[in-house]
Amino acid sequence: MPPDFEHPKPAASWETRAYWEGCGRHELVLQRCDDCGSVQHRPRAICASCLSSAVSHFVASGRGRVYTYTITRQNGVPPFRDALPYVLAYVDLEEGPRLMTNIVGCDPEEVSIGQEVVVDFQDVDASDLGEAGGSFAVPRFRPA
């Protein structure tokens, strides 16, 4: 199994803070519009379906399936260059949204489209991010 790597720290704004804080609690948080019911990812201050500002967060199951993936074998940028080969993927969540992520916890050659996966969080030190800092994590997925 290739070495895991420390994900770069996600930059957060007040619009996306709830997502990263949710990850810090090891909860995958999505948005739903209180007015039209639309579920959206990535998080933002308005509903991109009806422009309502009444957007709430809910905790997703963290289960999904691989939509597509690639085994990255060349990347000159740290920390990724020290973690080759690693798997970049899109995962379809049970709740609908499709999100970009990494598949970890298995040999890259074992990943396949349609594979069932579950969320796996890596805590990141965000203590330098002021009030928002201290409890972020990056969501990745591993075979279910």
């Binding site: 996600p10 930059a11 957060a12 996306t16 990535r42 990347n75 940028v77």
Partner: peptide, 15 residues
């Protein structure tokens, strides 16, 4: 590979 853009943070951590 990252950067300081909150909108890019949904791609940046994943290489």
């Amino acid at each position: 590979g990252g950067g300081r853009d909150p909108n890019g943070a949904f791609i940046g951590p994943y290489g």
